[in-house]
Design a protein around this nucleic acid. Sequence first.
DNA 1: TAGTGGTCTAGACCACCCG
DNA 2: GGGTGGTCTAGACCACTAG
Lengths: 244, 244
Amino acid sequence: MHRKKLQNNKYTPIEDPKPLYQQVKSHVLQHIQNGDWEIHGRIPSEHELVATLSMSRMTIHRALRELTQEGILKRVQGLGTFVAAPKQMATTLSLPNIEEYVTSRGNRYSCTVQFHQTDPVTPEDALKLGLKEGADIYRSYLIHKENNLPIMLEDRYTLPDRVPDYINQDFTKILVDSFFAARCPFINHDHQLSVQMSTQEIHHFMELDHPTPCLHLYQRTWSGDKLLSAAKFLYPGGHFALSC
Amino acid sequence: MHRKKLQNNKYTPIEDPKPLYQQVKSHVLQHIQNGDWEIHGRIPSEHELVATLSMSRMTIHRALRELTQEGILKRVQGLGTFVAAPKQMATTLSLPNIEEYVTSRGNRYSCTVQFHQTDPVTPEDALKLGLKEGADIYRSYLIHKENNLPIMLEDRYTLPDRVPDYINQDFTKILVDSFFAARCPFINHDHQLSVQMSTQEIHHFMELDHPTPCLHLYQRTWSGDKLLSAAKFLYPGGHFALSC
DNA sequence: TAGTGGTCTAGACCACCCG
DNA sequence: GGGTGGTCTAGACCACTAG
C-alpha cells in the first residue's frame, strides 16, 4: 500500500478510545434512541455512511452486521437497512447455578449426598430416556443447602457412556454441571418447569413439616445431540431472582 | 487492484454453496467435536490457518471472531486462540408468549379483560415502582384462556409516560408485549419467579374450586432504562415446556 | 440499470505477551 | 524482537431488488 494512504488511515487508537466500528454502532443506536430513525424505518445505506463518517465500507459493514446479529437492525439485500422491531416474543429467564445463587446472597453453600450409585434402568426411565431396560445408569440424589438448611433437592440420572468416571466424583465439592462442562464440548440443556405439592419424600429430605408448593425443574443435559444426563430439581416454596 | 489478483480471488459462490468464513467456522467446530482440538487447548493461529486454508486473514479472522462471540473460542491478544470450556453456569429458560404457547398445542387462544382503567398509585406500589403516591397509573387485569378455560392471570401496572395510548388498546386483540414492542425501542425485562398457593381471588377468576399451587412470575418491562410496566403472571398448577 | 447489502483480498498499523 | 490477535482501508466481485 502507498505511503499516502497510510497517512490517511483512520485507525488512530491513541486519540480514539473506542474502535471505529464501535463508534458507528453507538452512532446508530443513538439515532434510534433519539427517535431520529423510527422502528421499521430505513437508515442510511452503507455507501452513505461511508461518505458521512469518512470510513471504509468494511468498517461500516461490520458495525451494521453486528447490530443485525444483535437484533437491532434488519438488512435486506437490494433494499436497505431498517430498524428492527424488538421481537421479545419469548421471555427468556436466566437461572443462576445454585452455588452462585447462595453465595451471592452472602450465605454459605453446601451439599450432602444421599445416594450416588449404579442402578439398573427401570421400565419407565427406559421409556423416558430412550434407553434399554436393565442397563446400568448412575443415580445421584443430592441435597443443596444454604447455611446448612436444605433449599433444593436434585435427583439425577446420568448415562455412563460419555462420562464413565462420573461415579467417582465427589459432588459435595463440585457441581455436576461444572463436571460436565469441564470435559464435554457443546453442552446444552432442555427444560420443563412445573409446580407441585411436596410429597412425603420431600418432607423428609428437605426437613419440611407441612405441605408446601414446590418449583419443579426437569432438566436434560446434552453434548451435541448425545444425552448425558437428566435431573429433577425441586425448590420448596422458593423465590428466585432471574435476569433478562 | 491488479487483474492477476482478481483471478486468484477465492470468492467463487457458484461452486461453494457456503461463504468461506462459514466453511472456516464449520472446519473449526468439526475439529473440536472430533476431539482433535481439546477444551482449553490452543488451535492454529490466524497466520497458520491463512496458509493452511489459502484464504485471506480477514476471512479467517471473521470466522474466529464470530466463534468467539458465540462462546466457542477464547482469544487472547499476544497469546493465541483456545477452545473455550462451555460455561453453562447459568441455566437460561425461554418461556414462549402465552398465545404462541396455546396455539402451538393446537388449541384456541382467547383473552378476557376484567379491568382496564386508570388508578391512583397506592403507597405500596409507589414504593415498589419508584413512583410518587397518588399519580395516575394504568391497571389491566386480564384472564388468558385456552379453549375458553382460564390458564393464566395477568395483573399489570403501566406507566402512562411513554405509552399514553395504552389505555385505548383492546388487549383481547393483541398481547401487551406486542403493543410495547411495536412502539418502544430497546425493550428488556427482569423477572422474579416464585410459587404460591391460590387465593380466593385466584379461585374466582381462574374458576378453581380447591387450593392449587401456582407458578408466579413477576415481570418488569423497560425501554432502555425507563420503566414501562410491571406485571404479575399467575399460572395455576401449570406445566411449561421451555427451550435451551 | 442503478443501488443495495454480502463477501473476499492484500496489505497495513497497532497493542499485547512472551522468552 | 517475533508471534499473536484487533483493527482499518481500498478495491473488487457477486446477488438481490426495484423502477
